[in-house]
Design a protein around this nucleic acid. Structure first.
Lengths: 110, 110
DNA sequence: CTAACGTACAACCACATGGTTGTAGATTCC
DNA sequence: GGAATCTACAACCATGTGGTTGTACGTTAG
């Protein structure tokens, strides 16, 4: 299937997005890079929990980390974001076209 | 957060999409409605497993079922698909804009 | 040098997930 | 009416997930 080139990728990406904390981390980190502990302070959970969320986002290639001294700066991955956008585009277009086609049929039937 | 009106919805939707079988079911039933057992025949797993996948898609409001005799016809939910498209649009635009802004900064710095 | 900080990771827990088999209720076919 | 079909759902199992605490290690600040 065209849209599913890289099924595991899609799995990882959608799974990474299926958690409100991770979506929030992602949007923050796209705005500007933040260290893991800076992120950790924002949420009502332990450092370790947030660190794990970052790992999930990392494995989905949605963020990357770069050392700055003893800190690890988390950033939204511009290239990966393009990939996701394209992935979403694929589904979106596919679904919209099909949904549109269904609507036409429904309208014709009336 | 604007894009997160309905966090649980987004959770359910992304989670529903984070499985290749469910994405395949979804694209098929958008094309044309199919009974649960027709779907079940397509995958190397039990009827019950497929039925559960359909339930997950249903809870995410991505599909709906309507009885036809003893069969239950699964269809892609046109209205819900619009909602998803809008949801994806929101993230996509948000991310693209931010990604674009980051790129500009990076280019300026060079 | 030492203390504090930032990170990584292991071990553990409760619960969700994705799969199985089995059973039972409707509906249709003959 | 009786058999076959389609669906729903419970019970069970292995594994994954999201959280915790504790520990270890590198880096920076005093």
């Amino acid at each position: 299937m065209v849209v599913d080139s890289g099924v595991a990728d899609a799995d990882r990406v959608f799974h990474a997005l299926a958690d409100a904390t991770r979506r929030d981390i992602l949007t923050r980190v796209i705005r500007s890079g933040m260290s893991v502990s800076e992120l950790a302070r924002l949420y009502p959970m332990s450092f370790a929990a947030v660190q794990k969320h970052v790992v999930v986002l990392e494995r989905a290639a949605l963020v990357s980390k770069t050392r700055r001294g003893r800190e690890q700066i988390v950033r939204g991955e511009v290239e990966a974001l393009r990939r996701v956008a394209r992935l979403l585009d694929g589904y979106e277009r596919l679904w919209r076209h099909r949904a549109a086609a269904i609507e036409e049929i429904l309208e014709e039937e009336q």
